[in-house]
């Protein structure tokens, strides 16, 4: 008898499942444009990117990511507004000098990138230019900014989609760097 009555709970159960799905789907923390990266735990793609003309900072290639040192690869462009928002955090991290910060200048005219870095400061130890966007495609980049944490063996361990904020920096990126160095 009880078993028969339980069936009346079915609509409630279905509602709970659907409502839970909506709650997840419409949640303020979820950005539907953010896609999971398939590059996680894979070696960084093979590439050699020329240095940024007019700046005395070396270029970037896969070999630079395999030096045994944890590195942050930040894909940026001067036309990208959110890049401006995350820039102070990168400058701050660069000053602390705990991790190598490399930049990949994505689909940007070198002169514009140069002016942008002269205005805001250069946090990058190496800058590779990717004017055609081909290197970005090999990294699975769908928009700027994106930031990758690469371990000392040149393996991509984390990808941050969109601008880094203080919360992401302190709760995800810095602990991960600490863990990878340890």
């Amino acid at each position: 008898m009880i078993a028969r009555r339980l069936i009346y709970l079915a609509p409630v159960l279905v509602f709970a499942v659907v409502a839970g799905y909506f709650l997840w789907g419409l949640g303020p923390d979820r950005n539907p444009r953010e896609l999971p990266s398939v590059m996680i735990d894979k070696p960084a793609p093979e590439f050699t990117a020329d240095p940024l003309a007019g700046m005395s900072v070396p270029g970037l290639s896969t070999a630079d990511l395999r030096t045994g040192q944890v590195s942050l690869v930040n894909v940026f462009a001067s036309w990208c507004i959110p890049c401006r928002a995350e820039h102070p955090l990168l400058m701050n991290l660069a000053q602390r000098g705990e991790v190598a910060i490399f930049g990949l200048n994505y689909k940007n005219k070198p002169a514009e990138a140069l002016a942008w870095l002269e205005e805001l400061g250069n946090p990058y130890g190496r800058i590779g230019t990717d004017e055609s966007g081909r290197i970005g495609i090999d990294w699975g980049v769908s928009g700027v900014p994106e930031t990758f944490v690469v371990d000392g063996a040149g393996r991509i361990r984390y990808r941050h989609w969109g601008p880094i904020d203080r919360d992401a920096m302190e709760s995800i990126i810095l602990p991960l760097i600490e863990e990878l160095r340890g």
Binding site: L35, P36, S37, V38, M39, I137, D138, W139, G140, S142
Partner: peptide
């Protein structure tokens, strides 16, 4: 394409 951007 899938190797770079996933099944999506």
């Amino acid at each position: 394409m899938v190797a770079r951007y996933g099944d999506f």
